[in-house]
């Protein structure tokens, strides 16, 4: 199957928003929910994943001709696991406090389906430059989604943003938002909002295309 031709900038921007790994494709949900109780944690988790994704896409794209088709998934996983080990040790050295809070979830980047899906769907088939662009875009999209989650949860659950107090001492934090149920609820409501926005945009496009009546013109329906 020959891959569909796309423009280089499309490879980059697709992952950031229109095919955002977390919000649209529902991949890599475990870290997106588990470690996003503060913006700082989300950011470091996002950066670590970004690093692993870019590194593995680079290597996989580089040696894609050498990997036999039958064992490609184990090969990908081994490459990813190597980068995760590097990321795990680096985080421990750079930000020990964050590393402690993220806990085993750094190691769990190995089984982040988002990374594996990018190797399988993109890096193993495309040239090196494009694979890197795709990894940058998808990684950035992952960071964006994590920070979106982290911001809401930290502001509502703790009354702070990046550690700065926002509402003063009288604010009663909604502790539930930094606890597990808050993760599910925050993502649920982000998805609701995005769905609603999508619906509003399609409606508006319809009205623009046929201003005299909302929806498709009746003669097309009849045909």
């Amino acid at each position: 199957m020959s891959p569909r031709e796309t423009a280089p900038q499309a490879d980059f921007f697709r992952g950031v928003w229109r095919e955002n790994p977390v919000l649209i494709q529902m991949l890599g949900l475990c870290p997106a929910l588990a470690v996003t109780n503060t913006v700082e944690n989300s950011l470091w988790m996002g950066l670590a994943t970004f690093f692993v994704l870019t590194g593995s896409s680079f290597i996989v794209s580089l040696i894609k001709k050498l990997i036999p088709g039958e064992v490609r998934i184990p090969t990908f996983i081994l490459i990813i696991a190597t980068f995760v080990t590097v990321a795990d040790m680096s985080l421990e050295a750079i930000v020990p406090t964050v590393h402690k809070q993220l806990g085993a979830f750094v190691a769990l980047i190995v089984v982040n389906c988002m990374i594996l899906s990018r190797q399988e769907a993109f890096a193993a088939k495309r040239p090196l430059g494009r694979s890197l662009l795709d990894a940058f875009g998808t990684g950035l999209g992952f960071i964006v989604a994590l920070v979106m989650m982290g911001a809401i949860r930290e502001v509502l659950g703790n009354g702070t943003l990046m550690g700065f107090s926002l509402f003063g001492p009288n604010f009663e934090p909604w502790v539930i938002f930094i606890l597990p149920p808050g993760g599910f609820l925050t993502l649920g409501f982000w998805l609701l909002l995005l769905n609603w926005f999508q619906k509003w945009r399609t409606e508006r496009a319809k009205v623009r295309a046929w201003p005299e009546g909302v929806g498709a013109p009746p003669e097309r329906k009849a045909a």
Partner: peptide
């Protein structure tokens, strides 16, 4: 409601379940 169908609903239900399990 149409906007809540699919993943959004599942997450909100999961939030309620998680709350119960707490």
């Amino acid at each position: 409601p149409a906007v809540a169908r699919g993943a959004a609903l599942v997450f909100i239900i999961a939030g309620a379940l998680s709350l119960a399990f707490m």
